[in-house]
Design a protein around this nucleic acid. Structure first.
Lengths: 249, 249
DNA sequence: CGGGGAGTTGAGTTCCGTCAAACGTTGTGG
DNA sequence: CCACAACGTTTGACGGAACTCAACTCCCCG
């Protein structure tokens, strides 16, 4: 169920390439980027709000979440990054982040200095474009998240998240038939969806009882993608994973 | 209460320049961009979901909203663009939009072809950078919106929106002491904040009765910015309007 | 003067949050 | 190998914030 080992960067390349066309020499430039492997501490911010960062983090395995937080400790997760995603790519242009990051499970990343990324973008317009596009996809996902939290019912929110993650894991080739690894606690799911973990639990039970999906421990099984997509009003277009990477378990 | 007439682009330049440093020749390149004035139809999508666009829209006056929609007609506004903002700048890199746009009031824009923007970005790395940054600020605003909708109470949501818009209008120099033009119906406010217009109304009353702010017809008056900011837990950092553009009416 | 659209207000309902307890499961140490 | 502590999940009872529905007012414009 875990793949993506060929070249640790391969997933990221695939994703960029899927959405932008890069010249061979641009791909080479990307491959030449300096990067340092690192294992992130679980459930501890490795970037805090208002930190000045000088590197971005390419996720190799695991999950990274982007957090905003209220004073009372209530949190909102505004992005989930899985293998092949570049966490905090935006900080290349805005080193002073306005959000925090933490790993939600055992995760390994490659640290890439901003200087290198900036240089690559500066000398290869195609790369600048690809990076920019990557950010825009991030935006599209967040925008859909806003619709979810603002206008979907609790059950539809959970269903939507399962659909989205299933598509993203599929694109990363980390899905096995109808199941994939799931690293999120129910609290995290609540933090993504603007719900409490208690209510997430109830909604998961409801989805299970309707025979749509089962989330147990560390794996998700999608029994009926179409059914999930229906109650979630899920349409994968916003993920920009067009082409053969269909989304229809 | 309406300013920003010197050069219609001036507001946009200011904003870009505030956040990125542009060389004189890059500023010239921006000034040389071809642009066509246009008055947008009110309350009708001028970009629909899945449209292929070939231009972006620099707002000169009025307000433009970015919409997502559910099948039952429930809508979520995921961005508000005021004078000096470039609406749909992201579509430069992703012409097939996954959101709709409409003017929420009488608004005038300048249409700028994507080709021109793309050329400018390609030949001037500084411009590419500035555009990318602009998108990232958009993201930061949306991310804060996600926190708002996911974790703030209804009253705090309304207060937060008032704080944010007050800061943005201040930066655009379209605020007069403590009041600014307000083009949004209560339904729109609800669509931004994930509330119903009825409840928005109640919260506005509450803010009025507490002596914090008054929204009447087409103007907002902020009586007590600090008080609003307090209940909203508003911190303007995410708007990236640092420097002398303080936010403390 | 009259009609339409937005804003305002109240009454009743619902969805989701809160609180609290019980139930697994994992890991640690005796 | 068992005990138990720690943590996450599961479930129930209850309360409250926000939604729904519906009536009414206000204001603008013809």
């Amino acid at each position: 169920m875990s793949k993506m080992i060929d070249h640790p960067l391969q997933g990221f390349f695939n994703r960029l390439h899927l959405r932008s066309s890069l010249e061979p020499h641009e791909l080479d430039a990307l491959r030449g980027l300096p990067m340092k492997p690192k294992t992130l501490p679980v459930h501890r911010d490795f970037i805090r709000v208002s930190d000045e960062t000088d590197q971005s983090y390419l996720v190799v395995s695991g999950v990274v979440g982007r957090f905003s937080q209220m004073r009372d400790g209530n949190r909102q997760i505004t992005a989930l990054h899985i293998a092949g995603d570049m966490a905090d790519l935006c900080s290349v242009v805005f080193p002073k982040t306005s959000w925090a990051f933490q790993a939600l499970a055992e995760t390994e990343v490659l640290c890439i200095p901003h200087v290198a990324l900036r240089d690559a973008a500066r000398s290869h317009p195609g790369i600048a474009n690809a990076f920019w596009r990557d950010c825009v996809v991030d935006m599209a996902i967040m925008s859909e998240g806003l619709l979810t939290v603002g206008r979907r019912t609790a059950e539809a929110r959970v269903a939507h998240l399962l659909c989205e993650m299933s598509c993203r894991y599929r694109q990363a080739e980390m899905i096995d038939h109808d199941r994939f690894d799931w690293h999120l606690r129910q609290t995290h799911v609540g933090d993504v969806l603007g719900l409490t973990s208690v209510h997430v639990n109830r909604m998961l039970r409801s989805l299970r009882e309707r025979g749509l999906a089962t989330v147990s421990g560390t794996t998700v099984t999608i029994h009926d993608f179409a059914g999930l997509a229906k109650i979630a009003e899920f349409d994968p277009d916003y993920l920009h994973l067009r082409g053969r990477d269909e989304c229809s378990t």
